[in-house]
């Protein structure tokens, strides 16, 4: 990723801490801790990691549903948020003479115009649709908010067009969400996201609540829509097979930090980070013969609490390559060639 390359979304050193009360003290829960990545126009970036590693928080912070603690978000050439910290080439915060970080220009824009360009598809198709609204009103709400029509007829026409685009029957427009199956509900959610004709959609585990046969349909629909509309996705999931199928590049997260980032095939064939290795070895193999031969890397211990993170690399407590250096500092993402980035000292 050179600086000259065109990108749609660029995230630098994004941090999202949530204050958690423990007795009288308030301590930060580091849900997302210093993450950088970019998404090119029309590309799908997969984001994987286990439950609670901050995948969803990344998506929501990008869309500014949460106020970021620090970092910089650039979308389509416009800075949406900048907390002003400066970073040197090694990814360290530039400190001033007084030992405090140098704060540059702070930016915090009004998101309303950008909501038309960045949208989100939610995980749970059951709770993400208002049970008191008809499908027409659910899909029509973004059109109402951004005033994207001139007459009632045009509104209806647009809604029916969107429903057709995601494979829903026009006659279902007056029905309520609870009258649909999970797959159909997710289609309604996708139509709602597409209503404003966005350039970028955060897909927050859009298929994990669906059963496998429906998953395939919905994932294929995401791909078709991308071909038709040229929209870029940040596809969050914990199912590596699904992510590998849909993504151009995949990022692996562990406890709020980025561990590895590479092209989908490259990551699958040539994983470097020990965490990615163990994740890939946990993917179920359909053929029992092959499955018996393959060796599963079982991680020991539990995921540390994000309230009490280990020093340095968060994975070192469960990593068999861990050395003293890992406890001292967090390795930076470094390029291992071919746009394959890994944050590890030892591999």
């Amino acid at each position: 990723m050179s600086e000259n390359e065109k990108y749609l979304l660029k995230v630098e050193h994004l941090k999202q801490y949530f204050p958690v009360r423990r007795g009288f003290k308030t301590i930060p829960l580091k849900a997302v801790d210093d993450i950088s990545f970019s998404v090119k126009p029309g590309e799908t970036l997969g984001l994987v990691g286990e439950s609670g590693c901050g995948k969803t928080t990344v998506g929501r912070t990008l869309l500014r549903l949460y106020q970021p603690t620090a970092g910089r978000i650039v979308f389509d050439g416009d800075v949406l948020f900048d907390s002003g910290e400066q970073y040197d080439e090694n990814g360290k915060v530039v400190l001033g003479a007084d030992g405090k970080p140098v704060i540059g220009n702070k930016v915090d824009v009004n998101m309303l115009p950008y909501r038309k360009q960045m949208q989100m598809v939610f995980q749970d198709p059951y709770s993400s649709l208002n049970p008191r609204m008809t499908v027409e009103d659910i899909i029509g709400e973004p059109l109402d908010v951004h005033k994207l029509y001139r007459s009632r007829d045009e509104r209806r026409e647009k809604i029916l067009g969107l429903m057709e685009l995601v494979g829903l029957n026009a006659e279902h427009a007056m029905r309520y969400a609870h009258e649909f199956s999970g797959g159909q509900r997710q289609r309604i959610g996708i139509a709602r996201a597409l209503a404003v004709n966005p350039k970028f959609i955060v897909c927050d585990e859009p298929v994990s609540a669906l059963d496998v046969s429906i998953q395939a349909q919905v994932v294929n629909m995401f791909e078709e829509l991308q071909e038709k509309l040229g929209v870029a996705y940040l596809f969050i999931a914990h199912d590596l097979l699904v992510v590998h199928h849909i993504s151009d590049r995949i990022a692996v997260m562990y406890l709020g930090k980025m561990m590895e980032l590479a092209d989908a095939d490259e990551l699958n064939e040539n994983p470097i980070h020990p965490y990615t290795l163990s994740l890939l070895s946990a993917v179920p193999i359909p053929d029992p013969e092959t499955a018996r031969k393959s060796k599963r890397i079982v991680l020991e211990g539990d995921v540390p609490s994000p309230l009490n993170m280990p020093t340095g690399c968060p994975f070192r407590t469960r990593c068999r390559y861990a050395t003293e250096q890992c406890a001292k500092e967090m390795p930076q993402l470094t390029d291992r060639g071919n746009g394959h980035f890994v944050a590890c000292f030892n591999k």
């Binding site: 549903l65 709770s127 993400s128 649709l129 208002n130 049970p131 008191r132 709400e141 908010v145 404003v196």
Partner: peptide
């Protein structure tokens, strides 16, 4: 805390409308 309220915020719906259209009817 339902996701549909988050979805409405993501769309850019204003607070008054979220209360009227999404929360109070429920």
């Amino acid at each position: 805390n339902n996701e549909y309220v988050l979805a409405a915020r993501c769309i850019g719906t204003k607070n008054g409308r979220i209360l009227r259209r999404h929360i109070l009817p429920n």
